[in-house]
Design a protein around this nucleic acid. Structure first.
Lengths: 138, 138
DNA sequence: AGTATATACTTCGTGGCACAAACTAAATCA
DNA sequence: TGATTTAGTTTGTGCCACGAAGTATATACT
């Protein structure tokens, strides 16, 4: 029977396993998982504070503090928008980009190692599922 | 090609989707995800502080605070072990058990709803993967 | 044009989370 | 018995996240 408790349990367990890996990699780089996600976003974007809040599903006030701390570490910088004086864009510094790259490949390596023994067809299922699931959970 | 970036990305995205659901359910019940996990453990166990720390991959000092707060809310109680006066067992109160049940079914319902449109064979793949992956990530 | 409203972000206060180091008490080892 | 190990707590630090209240800029209305 699909969608039964065992499936839900498996999904939750899988999720915590991934999170544990992310938490550890973050800690090794003296970052939180949220900072890690932030750097992931900034690899290829220069979003506004509001866009970051939406992407991370955080209150805007939380993002202020998050960027404060990242900025204090030199990972990120605030840039005033030229078209709208209210908005602040957040850009990764060169150092921030370097950390993002390093952490990104680290995540890739560690998770691929975890998946090494899995069947290829099961991995394809993961991709299909991730694509199919609603972006925003119910 | 299995184990490529797209697979890793899918896995990470899947993980965050699940976590977001858990975070929301926890918040609706005025709990953190950690408290939610704690209650999950206590549904069918009465573990020592050390066992909880190991299960949640937390420092023991973190567990002290966690149980303090849960106890203050009446969800949990500390019981001295009769066989070893150093160890403290943690037991869910009736209220804690009730919350655990309610939250547990809520998680089940919401995640099953998310999985409703997925192919049964993909769900089977999730179960296989969760079983196959190392309990402790590399 | 001039006021009212909406939007973007920050600040402040509160509380939970997590860690490391230092501490107490009880059990075990030698 | 005395030394060591184990279980748990306390304290101090810092991050995370929220909501409410505040500032500044942009847009809408008339």
């Amino acid at each position: 029977m699909p969608g039964t408790p065992s499936t839900v349990d498996a999904l939750v367990q899988l999720s915590f396993t991934v999170q544990l890996t992310l938490t550890r990699i973050a800690a090794e780089n003296d970052l939180s998982v949220t900072q890690l996600r932030l750097l992931g976003i900034l690899r290829d974007r220069t979003p506004s504070m509001a866009a970051i809040a939406e992407h991370l599903d955080l209150d805007r006030s939380s993002v202020s503090g998050l960027i404060d701390r990242a900025e204090r570490r030199g990972l990120v910088e605030r840039v005033r928008s030229e078209t709208d004086a209210r908005v602040i864009l957040v850009r990764a510094t060169p150092e921030g980009l370097a950390v993002a790259e390093s952490v990104g490949t680290d995540v890739g390596t560690r998770l691929e190692r975890m998946l090494a023994s899995a069947r290829p067809t099961d991995l394809a299922a993961i991709v299909r599922l991730a694509d199919a699931l609603p972006q925003f959970p119910v």
